[in-house]
Nucleic acid binder design. Sequence first.
DNA 1: CTCAGTGTTCAGTG
DNA 2: TCACTGAACACTGA
Length: 264
Amino acid sequence: MPELPEVETWRRLADRTAVGKRIDKAFAASDELIFDRNSPSSVAKHLKGRTVSGTHRKGKHCWLSLDDGKHLYLHFGMTGSLWALAAREQEPSHVKLCLELSGGTRLLYRNMRRIGKVRLLDDVTALPPVSTLGPDPLEETLSLGWIQEKLAKRKAPIKAVLLDQTVFAGVGNWIADEVLYQARITPHRICAELTPDEIKRIRSCLMKILKKAVEVDADSTRFPKSWLFHYRWGKKAACDVLGDPITFDQVGGRTSAWVPTRIA
DNA sequence: CTCAGTGTTCAGTG
DNA sequence: TCACTGAACACTGA
């Protein structure tokens, strides 16, 4: 379930383990869906001998810069993840890219369901998808005025627009539901009809949730007990922390979990 | 066996 | 031209 907090946690992992290290060996699995721009072998060949010079993230997109000016772009899709293994540790299944770093650590990109991308790019930020993203809610100021302006033009339900990466970069399905739950707003509400106070609540809840999730390294067992997150997956007759029943609706093409009795 | 669930892109509609 | 909706993508697990 990689949304912004997981991706930021993996970026930090890559930053700790790979920056300043040389890539002694590189392995890329033959997978034309993941390696959709450059062939696996060309990626592996290019990476070998390079040194990782930095790590970056915007929304759910992550990339490592290399000493030759190129960038290794990683998108995790629905089931991707990044691992760092010590020399002796055994690799998990579905590894798509393995970088053996000087010192012996291996940095792994894993993806079980093959919806995700690994690319070698000259400039990540200049072209889609990263060029189309809205401001990163953690790194840049997501100003109230800017959000108000965007939402005023939209007639879609707020849930759908929370998932729109050109407005709220990094928000995915469970974070969108969590924001609306904590802000006490129905996912069906039309954006243009939200009051200034409701938009204010959406913004502050979003920032609070993202900050907290990153603070605990996106480890969901450490999320506050009050979060809807802990109660939404059971499905049948699920209730939130207060014992109020959770409703599941299709909104914006996805399942939305919300609690009618909690709406302000 | 069926189907939900993950994020993104694309085709179709208005 | 643009906003919006819904399907498609691959695969696991319930």
